[in-house]
C-alpha cells in the first residue's frame, strides 16, 4: 500500500482505499483475516487512530467485519460490493475530470467520443 501525504485525499481515506484495492485484487480474500491496525500503523508509519478511522469506514460499509478477540475479517461478497461502489463513483472520479480537461484543451464531444472508441479498440 502506498500513501501520499501530499495528496488532497486524507490519509484515512487513502488507507481505506488501499485495503479496498487489496481486497478487490484478491490479496486479502473474503472470509480471511485482514491486516491488523497495529500492523498497518507500524508498516505505514501512521498514527493508529488514523488507521482505525480508515478501517472503521470499511466496517461501516460492510466490507470488513470484526471478530471479537481475533481481529478484522474480509466480509463475504466484499469484492462485489467494492466493484459496485467503484462503478458508482466512476462518473465523478474519472468522467468529470476527463471532460473538464477536454474542454480546457478545446476538444469537442465528437472528438472525445472518437478517442474513447480508440481506447476500447487498442
Amino acid at each position: 500500500m502506498k500513501l501520499d501525504t501530499a495528496l488532497e485525499t486524507p490519509i484515512y481515506l487513502q488507507i481505506a482505499a488501499g485495503l479496498e484495492d487489496g481486497i478487490f485484487m484478491g490479496a486479502y480474500p473474503e472470509e480471511t483475516q485482514a491486516p491488523s491496525t497495529t500492523e498497518l500503523s507500524v508498516s505505514l508509519q501512521i498514527n493508529p487512530a488514523t488507521v482505525l478511522k480508515g478501517v472503521n469506514l470499511l466496517v461501516e460499509e460492510g466490507i470488513l467485519y470484526k471478530k471479537r478477540g481475533v481481529g478484522m475479517f474480509v466480509s463475504k461478497g466484499a469484492q462485489e460490493k467494492i466493484r459496485e461502489k467503484r462503478q458508482n463513483a466512476f462518473y465523478e472520479g474519472y468522467i468529470r475530470p476527463l471532460i473538464t480537461e477536454a474542454k480546457k484543451l478545446g476538444l469537442k464531444e465528437e472528438q472525445l467520443l472518437k478517442l474513447l472508441e480508440r481506447g476500447y479498440q487498442e
Binding site: 491496525t37 497495529t38 500503523s41 507500524v42 508509519q45 498514527n47 493508529p48
Partner: peptide, 14 residues
Amino acid sequence: REMFYRELLENYAE
C-alpha cells in the same frame, strides 16, 4: 530516524 518512528509506533500499539 525511520527505525525510531517504527519502534515508537510498535511500542505505542502495545
